[in-house]
């Protein structure tokens, strides 16, 4: 792996962290409406995972999608603008936080109904298989989504048809406020793959390099015709489920324990220990990331609201 690639990934993670912190502020100022689900703590999951995809590989995720959008190549400008409901947002202000997308970058959303995008991922992969494309669909979802019927229908169908899908469960330990073992009969989500005759792996999601290694191997096995697989990535969200979370379901000590395993800190230490980058270089990237976010916020603040007539645009392709 080239140094420039390492620096790019570190920069992406810090952009996500700073953008999410700023989004929380904008939310509290009333500049972002609706729900806001922050990705803080989970940055190594999507940064590591998506760094292993090829441009033709499709990515689809749930509503905790801001980080994924950045990793897929959307600019912080169009993400923050969407959060603020502006016409310059990636979904033109019609989608909001939970519905980011850019199909030109093979990022297929941002889906807000738990588990509902899993059958859609099956279909994305079916589209590629139908045409003989050597593309893999990467479908991300939370631990909570593995308890809804869509999970079963989608994984089963993908296995029956041997479709090129990497099913990625971001196990952040809680579905909203309900711990995994209070909602799922097996708390090791990877075990659920056996019901579909599907290979599965489990990896530490706070360690970007570990995520890259396992995800990269699985993506290429799938591309080579290995059929769908399930990857469980263990992680933790440092903030509440959404901005209105009383956090009565977990103890501060537990949160602090995980915060000591900050994925950005772990990767930073790795880069320095391996002499890939110096403190000064990384500090510079931190500053750059802050500048990217400041620019994105200024852009979004200055952007126009959607025009009143946009209300009726894009209901149908054929008006």
């Amino acid at each position: 792996m080239e140094k420039t690639e390492h620096l790019k990934l570190y920069h992406e993670m810090v952009v996500i962290r700073r953008m999410e912190e700023k989004s929380a502020e904008l939310y509290q100022q009333g500049k972002i409406g609706g729900f806001l689900h922050l990705y803080i703590g989970q940055e190594a999951v999507s940064t590591g995972l998506i760094s292993m995809r090829r441009p033709e590989d499709r990515v689809i995720t749930a509503y905790r999608d801001h980080g994924v959008a950045i990793n897929c190549g959307l600019s912080a400008r169009e993400v923050v603008a969407e959060l603020m409901g502006k016409a310059t947002g990636c979904s033109k202000g019609k989608g909001g936080s939970m519905h980011l997308a850019d199909v030109s970058k093979n990022f297929w959303g941002g889906h807000a109904i738990v588990g509902a995008h899993l059958p859609i991922a099956t279909g994305l992969a079916l589209g590629d298989a139908y045409r003989g494309n050597k593309a893999v669909t990467i479908c991300m979802f939370g631990d909570g989504a593995t308890n809804i019927g869509y999970f079963h229908e989608a994984l089963n169908m993908s296995a029956v048809w041997k479709l090129p899908v990497l099913w990625v469960c971001e196990n952040n330990q809680y579905g909203m406020g309900t711990a995994v073992d209070r909602a799922s009969a097996v708390s090791e989500i990877a075990q659920k793959a056996s019901g579909y005759g599907m290979p599965a792996m489990r990896v530490d999601g706070m360690d970007l390099m570990a995520v890259r290694k396992v995800a990269g191997e699985m993506i290429e096995q799938i591309r080579a015709g290995g059929g769908p697989m399930l990857l469980e990535i263990l992680t933790y969200r440092f903030r509440g489920h959404s901005m209105g979370d009383p956090e009565r379901y977990r103890k501060p000590e537990e949160v602090h324990h995980w915060q000591e395993n900050d994925p950005i800190g772990i990767y930073r230490k790795y880069l320095i220990d391996q002499k890939i980058a110096s403190q000064a270089e990384l500090d510079q990237l931190d500053d750059d990331a802050q500048a990217v976010v400041d620019d994105a916020v200024a852009f979004a603040e200055a952007s126009p609201e959607p025009a009143p007539e946009d209300l009726y645009k894009n209901i149908y392709v054929e008006a």
Binding site: V103, L124, G149, Y150
Partner: peptide, 28 residues
């Protein structure tokens, strides 16, 4: 069988898969 595809009895997956395939430009 590729173009006339028998599915499991799984209506959410049938329509979901049709949506996904349509997004890729097919006409399911």
């Amino acid at each position: 069988g590729e173009r006339v595809r028998d599915t499991p009895i799984a209506e959410a997956a049938i329509i979901g898969a049709a949506i996904g395939a349509a997004l890729t430009g097919l006409r399911p």
